[in-house]
């Protein structure tokens, strides 16, 4: 079992290492930890926002014209398969060592997670809700913004959570190309000097950042969608719904359980 308890007393060597890590962290907070952390935040927030800005219209369009959805899906999945290292290097001649060199590829990766979630979220809006909105005189645009997107929000945010966590962990690769972020601590202060403390600090901070961002998004969702409180979360309702459909050709795992074929929809006669 993964949660099996470890040994109770820490071996002295390990305790010493903890001390070493703490020492290094305390004496390097101002430089390089704080600036690298800040860079890391910028390099993860920007791609997610950029990705969302692209994924929303793309997803809305794909939901409206389902014929194009498979093509869109294949496109974002091919992007997803590109090695990040290669993309960083390829952009270097154009964008240099500016943050854009990291932001653009990372934003492209988020599409593979965000687009399917936007489409699934919109597909999930019950027909009667859509019809009621139309019957009450909502224009299509207004209906989208005031009715459909809010109803799809839990699913969209579920995708946003996975995309954010994935991006935060991937920013470190950008450091291989010298683009900053916590990976820089791991590589320049740790790897090249054969010194473990900075690596541990970098990894821990990156993980902590991912969890913090995830927590913030959960809070954001609760605040934005008060009607879902006390019900099943968007993520699970999505996986339930998705469980009735076949998997699209190359959908990446979106964390909340991707589309599969589980038990037959009950009560539907052949």
């Amino acid at each position: 079992m993964p949660d099996a308890a470890g040994p109770i007393g820490l071996p002295p060597r390990f305790a010493g290492q903890v001390g070493e890590v703490a020492d290094w962290a305390l004496s390097n907070i101002d430089d390089p930890i704080a600036p690298r952390l800040l860079e890391h935040v910028q390099l993860s927030v920007a791609p997610v926002l950029l990705g969302l800005a692209v994924a929303l219209p793309l997803g809305v369009a794909a939901a409206r014209w389902p014929r194009w959805y498979p093509a869109v899906l294949t496109g974002v999945n091919v992007l997803y398969a590109l090695p990040s290292l290669a993309l960083f290097f390829l952009l270097l001649p154009y964008t240099g060592f500016s943050p854009w060199t990291a932001i653009i590829p990372l934003a492209l990766y988020t599409l593979a997670i965000l687009v399917p979630n936007v489409v699934d979220g919109l597909d999930q809006v019950p027909d009667h809700v859509r019809q009621a909105a139309t019957a009450m005189g909502f224009s299509p645009m207004r209906r989208l913004v005031r009715v459909e997107l809010p109803v799809a929000l839990p699913v969209i945010i579920a995708g946003l959570r996975v995309a954010t966590v994935a991006t935060i962990s991937m920013v470190s690769v950008a450091s291989l190309v010298g683009l900053g972020g916590l990976g820089q601590i791991i590589l320049t202060d740790g790897f090249r000097r054969n010194f473990a403390a900075p690596v541990v600090v970098g990894v821990l901070l990156s993980v902590a950042l991912a969890f913090l961002a995830d927590g913030l998004l959960v809070l954001l969702q609760r605040w934005l969608t008060p009607w879902t409180r006390g019900r099943e979360t968007g993520a699970t309702s999505r996986s339930r719904r998705a469980a009735r459909r076949d998997a699209p050709p190359t959908a990446p795992d979106t964390g909340s359980a991707a589309p599969p074929a589980a038990p037959a929809a009950r009560g539907e006669d052949a």
Partner: peptide, 14 residues
Amino acid sequence: RALPTIGVLTLVVL
């Protein structure tokens, strides 16, 4: 998911 791959790689290399 949250673990930076580079960090894990570096730690184990060290």
